[in-house]
Amino acid sequence: MGERMMDTEGQVIMPFYLLCDVSGSMVPDMRDLNNGISELHQALLSEPIINDLVMLSIITFNHTAQTVVPLAAPENITLPQLTASGGTEYGPALREFHQKFQADRARLKGEGKRVYRPCVYFLTDGEPNNKNYLKDFTSLITKEHNEAYPYVCAFGFRDATAATLQTVAYPNFGEQNKRGRYFIAKQSAKITELLTSMVGVLAQSILQSGHSAQAGAPVVAMPQPQAVSGMVGSFV
């Protein structure tokens, strides 16, 4: 199986999970976030050649978490209108992702698919109310405890800090040039422009990954540190 963790049946599927903070502090940004997610979806639909190779799921979180878009091919996705409320906790999002990916992986394998290692994009505008998420991260996400550990790329703005994002972007995926990445907003950046830039980078990452699978050599194309305008990116 190797470090890339790809199941060994038929057609390859590359799963991507977008974990979006929808706590109360995100209220002024929800229109931009909804528009950005719609643009991401349209970008994926614009390249039908990868429709059978990549799948996307969206999980929202505040003090709880829920899957609002189950993992599916772009053409089979219906986007909800996201709203914001509540506090900020990371643990529920990590637990929701882990539970859903385990079920998604079993379902896809049952359909004869080869499931590539998942990729998580984690988007937040603030610090969690406590550090309880670290226990969930260690037990559910890290490769020491999870054979199917995901690639992680974290994006933070407003009150999010680099120190916290580093704990979410897993530092060692066991492959050269596949360390975790995190992006933190520059103080001068406008949130509307940040979200637009982030969405463009996510679309590029997913599309490039899909094209690699279409070419027969699948690899997750993680965003480079300089990729997001208005943000400073770093490897963990």
Rank of each mutant, 00 (worst) to 15 (best):
T8Y: 08
E9R: 09
V12D: 08
M14Y: 03
P15E: 05
P15H: 02
Y17E: 04
Y17I: 05
L18K: 00
C20Q: 11
S23A: 01
S23N: 02
G24F: 07
D29S: 12
N35Y: 10
E39R: 14
Q42M: 15
A43H: 14
L44Y: 01
S46T: 07
I49T: 10
D52V: 01
D52E: 13
L53D: 03
M55Q: 14
S57K: 06
S57Y: 07
I58W: 04
T60M: 06
F61P: 01
N62A: 08
H63N: 07
V68Q: 09
V69I: 12
P70W: 03
P70Q: 11
L71A: 12
P74G: 03
E75N: 13
N76D: 15
I77G: 06
P80I: 02
A84V: 07
E89M: 09
G91E: 15
A93Y: 02
H98R: 14
F101Y: 14
D104L: 06
R105C: 12
A106E: 15
G110S: 08
R114S: 15
V120E: 05
Y121W: 12
F122M: 05
F122T: 03
L123T: 02
L123Q: 03
T124S: 09
T124W: 04
G126C: 04
G126A: 04
G126M: 05
E127H: 09
L134M: 13
L140K: 06
I141N: 01
I141V: 12
H145A: 10
E147Q: 14
A148C: 12
V152M: 11
C153S: 14
F155M: 06
F157K: 03
D159G: 07
A160M: 07
A162F: 11
T164K: 09
Q166R: 14
V168S: 02
V168F: 06
A169Q: 09
A169N: 09
N172C: 09
N172V: 07
G174L: 07
E175W: 08
Q176G: 02
N177F: 13
N177A: 12
K178L: 13
K178T: 10
R181T: 10
A185V: 06
K186E: 15
Q187D: 15
S188W: 11
S188E: 15
E193W: 04
L194I: 14
L194M: 08
L194H: 03
T196Q: 12
T196C: 06
S197R: 07
S197Y: 10
M198L: 12
V199W: 03
G200Y: 08
G200N: 11
G200L: 07
Q204L: 13
I206T: 07
S209H: 07
H211I: 11
H211E: 13
S212G: 02
Q214L: 12
A215D: 14
G216M: 00
G216L: 00
V219I: 15
V220W: 04
P223D: 05
Q224S: 11
P225F: 08
Q226Y: 14
A227H: 00
S229N: 13
V232I: 15
F235G: 01
F235P: 00
V236S: 15
